[in-house]
Structures are given as structure tokens and as C-alpha cells.
Amino acid sequence: MKKSVGRRGFLVSGAVVGAGALVTACTSNAPAATPSSAAPQATTAGTDNDQPGTKVVIGFSAPAADHGWIAAIAKNAETQSKEYSDVEFKPVEPTNDINQQISAVESLIAAKVAALVILPNDGEQLNQVARKAMDAGIPVINLDRVFPDKLSYRTWIGGDNYGMGVAAGTYVGKTLKDKGVTNPVILEIQGIATLPLTMDRSKGFADALKTFGFTVTAKQDAKFTVESGTQVASNLLQAHKKIDAIWNHDDDQGIGVLAAIKEANRSEFFMVGGAGSANAIRDIAADSGVLKATVTYSPTMASSAIKLARLIAQGKGLSDLVENSVPTSITLASETITKENAQKYLPLGFES
């Protein structure tokens, strides 16, 4: 079955700091250096785990870079792999076609790579080929969009999508309460409504709002694209003459959402974004528009996935843990970025 998923299929909450903390935890207690580029990149702390070891080939498969977040995922994975003289990075052609990604992963299995890092277009549809890799003795590091069968991966690393919704809902709820707003009109612009990650984000958002006595007035998905973001936001703006708050799940599609808001000349509400893009963080820092915060879901997780793949392939564990092996699941935290802390997060933002 051919199915194209334009982008993140399951995602966590954005975890800018969480990812950075994990990268350091893999090897050292030393603080990570601040990346100098706009795209988030991991740093390597010099400890025994980072000393050259057994040569390993790490296969990598991800969707096509049709968005800033996915582009940063691929860049971070490649950049991190170059930090190690004992790692050969073997990426396959990125694609948004399910069948093509399955074929690409099968080619890596046939090449007998030491480990596989896979960000699937759709975890359920690639579950079988991931299980095939595991059955062949190739550990799979499942990045972001999860495989439903736990036997299909050795370790999963990704964001906390439910926590992402909670972070956004908490910010929205508290802000409205502090303003003394009652019966607010709260809109939610999702990514792809049918994805488990989206459902988790929406549930977290609703649960957090409930603690303040609020509910979502209306929601619609925008498919993680700028074009759909513009169209969906336009429709919602036309349907609601008064709005108090909007949560947009994704900063990439947020470019379109903000364009629609500007075109409609609306400013009576505030907006919260999602993922932590550099352009969103810059807008928040400038404090000149409706975007007042974003909740993180950082592509630095790809850097951490490469680190984990190397450790697993070489039979090592995380040096800050007592256990001798890498955990089977690592969930990154979702942080809330506001104008007060925007400059701290900007170096880790990805360009949309």
C-alpha cells in the first residue's frame, strides 16, 4: 500500500534541552557546548565512550526533507556521525513513499549494517521491515515515529507528544486565567489528525486546559504544510469573529498560519507554536506579533540516535547510568519557549 505522510509521523514534544542533556549523558557529566549554527547539532564530550572502538556501519533512513524539521533531522544525523572515526554513515535516499522506504531499509539489511536508525514515514506500515532487521540481528534505533511492535526496535528515542500538548495547554490556560478571561475561544491547528502523535498532543492539550476549566472550541489539521496552514487558519479566522488563543502544533506549518493571520489583520488573540523553529523563536523574542510562545520538539534527537546506535553496536552503555546497556526507551522533555528565555533556545532552533 502506498501512503505518503508529509512529515512527522509521531513526534514528541520538542525537547531542545532534553536532547542536549541526553547527548551529554551518553558520554559525560560535562556540560554540552552551545552550538553555533541555527540548526541544532549535538556536541561530543570527550570520555571513554567517545574513544575510537570497533568500526561500525550505521544505516539511516528518514522521510524526504520537505520541511525544516525533517531537514534538520537528516543534517544532525550526518553531522554527528562525522564526530567518530569508527563510524561509517550509510544513509539511503530519503522518500515520502512508504514502499520506497521499505525497499531502502531492505537494502540496508542486505548490506548487513551494524545498526539501523530509522525515522519511518509511518511506524505501523514500516513495522514489518523493522522487525525483519531485528530478526537479522541488526539493532534498530527507532527515531520519533514509533513502531507498534516492540520487537521491531532495540531502542526508541523521541519526543513526548502528550507532554507537548500539556506544555501548550498549560501556557494557554495560565495566560487566559491571568488575564481574567472567561469562556475563551480556543482554537487548535493540528498537523495530521490521524497520526498517533497528533492524537497524543491533542489529548495533552485538552487535559491541561481542563485543569483551568477550559476546552478547545474548534480544531482542524493542516497536514504539516505551509500551504495547508494558510488555508486552515483562514477558514478558522473566518468562522470565529473573536478568538482568545490558538495552539498551532507545528512551527513549519506555522509560517502559513501566521501569513493568514497577517492577511486577515487579526491580533486580538495570542498564539503558541510547536517544535521550536528558529524563525518562531526570533518572532517570540521580538514580541511584535501574536506568537508568544512555542513548545519544543527538537530534531537534535537524530544526533542522539546516532550516538545510541554507535553505543549499542559496540556493546556499550550510557556512562552516566549504572546499567551496562542502553535503555530501550528514551523520551525527551518538551520545553516552553517565551520571550524571557528565547535567546537561550535560539542556537538550537531549526530553520523552517
Rank of each mutant, 00 (worst) to 15 (best):
K132G: 03
K132W: 01
A133R: 04
A133N: 08
A133L: 08
A133E: 09
M134S: 14
M134G: 11
M134T: 14
D135N: 15
D135E: 15
D135W: 02
A136N: 13
I138T: 10
P139D: 09
P139R: 07
P139Q: 10
V140Q: 09
V140D: 12
V140C: 11
V140M: 11
V140L: 11
V140K: 01
V140Y: 10
I141Y: 03
N142I: 01
N142E: 11
N142C: 13
L143D: 03
L143K: 03
L143R: 02
R145N: 15
R145P: 00
V146H: 00
V146A: 12
V146N: 01
V146D: 00
V146M: 13
F147C: 06
F147Q: 05
P148F: 11
P148R: 09
D149E: 13
K150A: 12
K150L: 02
K150V: 02
L151S: 14
L151M: 11
Y153W: 12
Y153N: 02
R154D: 13
R154P: 00
R154F: 11
T155E: 03
T155S: 12
T155Q: 09
T155W: 03
W156E: 05
I157M: 04
I157E: 03
G159C: 07
G159I: 02
G163T: 05
M164V: 00
M164S: 12
M164C: 07
G165Y: 10
G165E: 08
G165F: 11
V166G: 01
A167C: 06
A167K: 14
T170M: 05
Y171Q: 06
Y171M: 10
Y171I: 08
G173Q: 04
G173W: 01
G173E: 03
K174T: 14
L176G: 05
L176P: 05
K177I: 02
D178S: 11
K179L: 13
K179V: 01
K179C: 04
G180I: 10
G180K: 08
V181D: 05
T182C: 03
T182R: 12
N183K: 15
N183Q: 15
